[in-house]
């Protein structure tokens, strides 16, 4: 298959020594196997995620994403914009929709961009990496690269919120999307059937500002994974990954639970199944070690 190229928006958490740096490592490994070339948007900026709204009004927020889109149109013309972070994807796609839907927002956004000599047309598709995998490759093609099937691992597919709503993945329902389970199966592992917290919220940015309320939500997400017999949770979102993985000690001390549930990315699973080693799969970035996955990676 010929090399596929995309205009890549990596996002803040993907940077070196940032919370999702291990996500980026595994995405690079996965793309290497699939012959995907990610052309990073030069000088991309933060999208302000879904918490920038208080200080940044509508137009400043649109302008942030529009700057990235303008740079992408200029440097990576003709390519789809692809994001790996759910919030980056959502903010950029939302911006595209609003600009195309409203002439005056398009005009005002371009007035703002002109202050830095930029102009946006919003003419590139804005996609999540998961869409690329499912739509441009498909499960069969993804399965062909599996060298080490993830046999004997049971995995709860935690889709979360922003990869799922409001846009979601074409052909999947908002309430019970199946793509993560299918990806798990494609890699040779066993998905948890009827994982009831698969689209529940982890608190998102409120994990920082309202830790108690958010940790109550996270507790239920982990508990449901244990109830389904999961060895680990898999997610396509860096905020979900961090929130569900790193607060388990605090949750344990508050709720007297004994959680030790690893949380990995779909790209971690794919890298390991594709034969990449421990480090290439970003497994050294796990706070809670996914032992069964580590064992396969080290084989």
């Amino acid at each position: 298959m010929a090399k596929k190229e995309y205009s890549f928006y990596p996002g803040c958490s993907s940077q070196k020594a940032a919370s999702g740096s291990n996500y980026q490592v595994s995405v690079d490994s996965m793309c290497d196997v699939l012959d995907i070339q990610l052309n990073t948007i030069p000088d991309w900026n933060c999208c302000s995620a879904s918490i920038g709204y208080a200080e940044g009004g509508e137009l400043p927020r649109l302008a942030l994403s529009a700057r990235n889109m303008a740079l992408s149109e200029q440097h990576n013309a003709g390519q789809d914009i692809v994001a790996t972070c759910a919030a980056c994807w959502l903010a950029t796609r939302e911006t595209k929709d609003r600009l195309l839907h409203s002439e005056h927002l398009m005009k005002e956004t371009n007035e703002a961009l002109a202050a830095a000599g930029l102009n946006v047309k919003a003419n590139q598709n804005v996609r999540h990496m998961v869409e690329v995998l499912i739509e441009d490759f498909g499960y069969d093609a993804l399965g062909k690269h599996v060298k080490k099937p993830l046999e004997g691992i049971k995995i709860a597919g935690y889709v979360g919120c922003q990869t799922n709503r409001p846009f979601g993945i074409q052909g999947e329902s908002f309430e019970n999307p199946k793509y993560l389970d299918k990806l798990v199966e494609t890699m040779g592992a066993e998905p948890v059937e009827n994982y009831q917290k698969k689209v529940s919220c982890c608190g998102g940015a409120l994990a920082f500002s309202e830790p108690e309320k958010s940790q109550a939500l996270i507790k239920d997400i982990i508990e449901a994974a244990y109830d389904g017999g999961a060895d680990m949770i898999v997610t396509p979102c860096p905020v979900c990954q961090m929130n569900v993985e790193v607060y388990q000690d605090q949750i344990n001390s508050k709720y007297k639970t004994k959680f030790k549930m690893p949380v990995v990315y779909y790209s971690t699973l794919m890298s390991v199944a594709y034969g990449k080693d421990f480090k290439q799969s970003g497994l050294d970035g796990q706070v809670i070690a996914p032992n069964k996955l580590n064992a396969i990676a080290k084989k």
């Binding site: 000088d43 900026n45 940044g56 009004g57 509508e58 137009l59 400043p60 649109l62 302008a63 942030l64 700057r67 005002e108 956004t109 007035e111 703002a112 961009l113 002109a114 202050a115 830095a116 000599g117 930029l118």
Partner: peptide
């Protein structure tokens, strides 16, 4: 280009 970004945000705030 922080200078450019700051100019964009300033302008966006003014318009709004």
């Amino acid at each position: 280009d922080t200078k450019g970004l700051h100019a964009i945000l300033k302008k966006a705030r003014e318009i709004e």
